[in-house]
Design a protein around this nucleic acid. Structure first.
Lengths: 229, 229
DNA sequence: CCCATGCTGTCATCTTATTGTCATCAATTC
DNA sequence: GAATTGATGACAATAAGATGACAGCATGGG
């Protein structure tokens, strides 16, 4: 999964650093801002996936910023976690009413904060499972993560599954190894092009028992193609 | 008909007792909580059919709790009756907007309260409290909170029970740990994803004596799947 | 009220499936 | 038949899941 970008809006350097450290540690990308203005700037440039917002900010307060964020069509769907100093009920209510999706009271435990961040992100990014795709007698269902050929189960590793899924949704077209790397492994992966060969072979091997290995075709000098012929 | 479970969320012991007495008297099951946290706990364990919610609560207020309840897929259909101290219209509106289905102002007459509760339950009755579900030789009955395999009782803890129930009602589909956390633990719980593994193991261990542990399948890289194969 | 018991969530550790890379072999191309 | 280009089998590193242990709580009896 592509790591999410998290914007920290916090004026106190010490806390900002603490947050940044923990969040980076957890494998997320971190953006920082000390006030509402720089927050907006960051948002325009980077469009974070989640915002950690300090309740008290110099100038425009966190609550106001949250309201602004909610009012803007571009940002109204970004989940906001409010950081409040006191655990006062009034604050909590206001925080939630102001558009924050969750709040954490300082001092907070890194564990809890990270858990809340993850929960928020997970809820907010409903993965589209995708429809069952078919090619000839081959069927692949992302929802159940199963592949069958003429009703017989086909065993695939994760990478081969993704590879076949891509092929079945992009039939008849030739893809170079580089293109396949981008599509299946993602653009940031640093993997040898030859590795594609190996996975192609593994996919073929998995399709061999049901005599469908010939669907994965080599186009010499160009790459590979999936075809129902 | 199975008597309904009613959760009372009220911090004042005197009122809580009064409510509990009346409601028990009327033949319902009573659950109690003094604040939002213990309310959530009760809900996770017992899933009430109706919630009586005090407007003013220490910590997270009743309004906020109501909103949270509405936001969670598991609880969003549970009818909520809000208890407000003052009869102010503003409060009432807010209470209703916050997701409450009805409100009663304190001091209230037990007669009136019970009438409203019954009306609410009656209106909301068509909600299937959970039919007995079966998968192969496995049977799970939410009503009796029992699980049997080929007639042999299967011992499960509360979490494993909910997990199995979810699986049995969502057969064949793969769920990521994150999705299972949302579905079984609720969206507000902050729990490690690895914890899912442990409960999966416990569920398998419980199903092992009846040789049905293989129904809970691991889909490497994706999550888990329940399947009758 | 206190203790026994059971349930939970978390860790640290162990196991195993999957991955990426090579070296080598086979085929095509010119 | 030399030079490319792809196929394959082996292998070590890695990542992901399974498992056992454990401490904190909650629950329910006594």
């Amino acid at each position: 999964m592509m790591s999410a970008k998290i914007l920290i809006v916090e004026d106190e350097p010490a806390i900002q650093e603490l947050l940044a450290f923990n969040i980076t540690q957890a494998g997320f990308q971190v953006l920082c801002a000390e006030d509402a203005d720089s927050a907006w700037q960051q948002i325009r440039n980077q469009m974070p996936d989640l915002i950690l917002l300090d309740w008290m900010l110099p100038g425009i307060s966190g609550v106001v910023l949250a309201k602004q964020l909610r009012a803007d069509a571009h940002t109204k769907d970004i989940p906001i976690i409010m950081l409040t100093a006191r655990g006062e009920e009034r604050d909590k209510v206001l925080g939630l009413e102001s558009g924050a999706d969750d709040y954490v009271t300082k001092p907070f435990s890194p564990r809890e904060l990270m858990a809340r961040i993850r929960a928020m992100l997970r809820r907010h990014a409903p993965q589209a499972p995708g429809e069952t795709v078919a090619a000839g007698a081959l069927e692949l269902s992302p929802a159940t993560h199963r592949v069958t050929a003429k009703g017989i189960a086909v065993e695939l590793g994760p990478t081969e599954f993704r590879l076949l899924h891509f092929f079945m949704t992009h039939v008849e077209r030739v893809y170079s190894r580089a293109q396949l790397l981008d599509q299946i492994w993602g653009t940031q992966a640093f993997v040898e092009e030859r590795t594609v060969d190996v996975h192609i072979r593994r996919l073929r091997a998995a399709l061999e028992p049901v005599k469908m290995d010939n669907l994965v075709q080599t186009v010499r000098g160009s790459g590979y193609r999936f075809s129902i012929n």
